[in-house]
């Protein structure tokens, strides 16, 4: 998902007997559905894992501004321009809320930013794909935000209080994101032949990258088992991917668009669709840095960070002078 490949530091889930008394008490609180708060005792692994996961999630929001920001200046009507701008602005806000949640664990936002720029921290693979046409704004809202919401709604119940509260706010704000995407797709699918072609092309390009957003199968992953025990991951990747496909296929049918998968078929026995897995080699390559837009995305973030340095320093210097003057005046 937005945090696709968070490697935990643990060696799998400890049995109660292996745990220290603190760890046992901590696990008992989580099992009792209590929230862990910043100043509470927590295992080192829990803290580190959370920083990686929330940080990755935050980075994804910020880098995720870029592919959609690519179309703000070319939106076809004033209303579409405002909707898209408000949506991309929300993503900046979501990044901000998530960074703040991670900061409660003792890491600074600037340090996390440096880790993103140096490549030490990752962001979701999906934002390394280009947005080529206006229909991509529809596809991103409909599919990418649709996939994101599927992951974020359960995370509102995650064990770490600040993370859970950030997710509540994010989910509330995001509720219009997927709808505006589908609304664009409806207009395109019902529009001129060129618009319809554009819509189908966008679905073709974003289908598999959207499925990849949930990450590879984690049924046997010890990292995932630990994260689930700690309730910082609520559902398995395969579970969410299946749910996404089952929800999205009828929507594509409604639009009169074709999901680009010959293997797609309703399986009455499992009560869901069978579908073709995405190309995981491509996924790992994109995550490693070899996607179509990785270099541009990081360059854009690096440039914004570098170009903004004098502004951040200038405003801080003024703030300090003002505070000093205020203290002197007392």
């Amino acid at each position: 998902m937005y945090a696709q490949m968070v490697k935990s530091t643990g060696r799998g889930v400890k049995s109660p007997e292996e745990m220290t008394p603190e760890e046992r008490a901590f696990q008992a609180r989580i099992d009792a559905d209590e929230k862990i708060e910043p100043r509470d005792w927590m295992p080192d692994g829990y803290r580190k894992n959370l920083i990686r996961q929330i940080g990755q999630h935050a980075h994804s929001e910020i880098v995720g501004q870029l592919p959609e920001g690519n179309w703000i200046t070319r939106a076809p009507t004033l209303e579409r321009k405002m909707i898209l701008l408000a949506k991309v602005q929300d993503e900046a806000g979501h990044g901000l809320y998530l960074y703040a949640a991670a900061e409660t664990l003792g890491v600074s936002r600037d340090a996390m930013t440096e880790d993103l720029l140096s490549g030490r921290m990752k962001y979701s693979s999906i934002f390394n794909y280009p947005t080529l046409t206006w229909a991509d704004m529809g596809a991103v809202g409909w599919l990418v935000d649709g996939a994101a919401i599927m992951n974020q709604v359960p995370l509102q119940r995650t064990s770490y209080g600040p993370y859970a509260r950030a997710m509540v706010r994010i989910c509330k704000e995001e509720s219009f994101h997927q709808r505006q995407g589908f609304d664009i797709m409806m207009k395109m699918a019902q529009g001129s032949p060129a618009q319809k072609r554009m819509a189908q092309d966008a679905l073709n390009r974003f289908w598999y990258p959207s499925l990849m957003m949930f990450g590879p199968s984690d049924a046997t992953s010890v990292h995932s088992a630990q994260s689930m025990a700690w309730r910082i991951k609520i559902n398995s990747n395969d579970e969410l991917r299946q749910k996404f496909v089952d929800q999205t296929v009828p929507q594509a049918e409604y639009l009169g668009l074709t999901v680009p998968d010959d293997g797609l078929a309703w399986n009455a026995e499992k009560g869901g669709y069978d579908f073709t897995e995405p190309d995981w080699e491509e996924f790992f390559a994109v995550l490693k840095g070899d996607g179509p837009c990785n270099a541009e995305r990081l360059q854009a973030r690096q440039k914004a960070w570098d170009d903004g340095a004098w502004v951040r320093e200038g405003l801080l210097a003024h703030g300090r002078k003002r505070r000093a003057a205020g203290i002197a005046a007392q």
């Binding site: 703000i72 602005q89 990044g95 914004a304």
Partner: peptide, 27 residues
């Protein structure tokens, strides 16, 4: 329109959000 060109590229997240608010008001 000009201010909306800043979206995603401002010196700090808070400034990015504020610029977008201004652009939305003006549009």
């Amino acid at each position: 329109h000009r201010i909306s060109e800043w979206c995603g590229l401002a010196p700090a997240l808070e400034e990015d959000i504020a610029l977008a608010n201004t652009a939305l008001d003006l549009i």
